[in-house]
């Protein structure tokens, strides 16, 4: 688990992080990346997931946004998307942590709620991790959200005010 999470941040966030490893593995990714954390958060049922769903980013919405980004990126190189069935493979059972997910967690909102109770901080831990993902300015997630027409800054503000 990335070093940013060495503190005990509650079972909710831990479950979300563990699921992000499954998301990466299932997609044949060698590394767990912020998009896997985003998918995991969207599927969590957490208050953060409700905020995501509110802007059209339920689990299917996140999947569609990520697919759209990949298609854009491949077209930039003149490549048409390859059919999913040709890419089907048994995933790596132990994907490593990518550098971007470490950066996302570093940008999380964990220390901003110091004045809240421990229970409150734990309740909002997933939302605070999501803020970190949304604070990434470059790369797959901000691209996917831009193409999906999601206002990242507005979403961050909403999450900060939880």
């Amino acid at each position: 688990m990335p070093e940013q999470l060495h503190e005990d941040l509650g079972v909710g966030l831990k479950a979300v992080i563990v699921r992000s490893i499954d998301e990466a593995s299932r997609r044949g990714a060698a590394k767990v990346e912020p998009e896997h954390l985003l998918l995991s958060i969207a599927a969590s049922g957490d208050v953060a997931a409700l905020e995501l769903a509110d802007v059209g980013l339920d689990y299917a919405g996140v999947e569609a946004a990520l697919r759209g980004e990949r298609e854009h990126a491949l077209r930039a190189a003149g490549i048409e998307p390859v059919a999913e069935e040709r890419l089907h493979a048994t995933g790596s059972s132990r994907p490593g942590w990518g550098s971007s997910i470490r950066e996302a967690l570093k940008r999380g909102n964990f220390t901003a709620r110091r004045d809240r109770s421990r229970a409150e901080r734990e309740r909002l831990a997933v939302a605070d991790a999501l803020i970190g993902v949304l604070r990434l300015d470059l790369g797959t997630v901000p691209r996917a959200l831009a193409y999906a027409g999601v206002d990242r800054a507005a979403l961050i503000t909403r999450l900060e005010h939880l």
Binding site: A29, I79, R86
Partner: peptide, 23 residues
Amino acid sequence: ADDLAAVVALRELADRLEDAAIE
């Protein structure tokens, strides 16, 4: 950013295609 994202997407595609083709 598009060019850099294309690099990421091509690497991912090559990796996944390699896994699938070898399997």
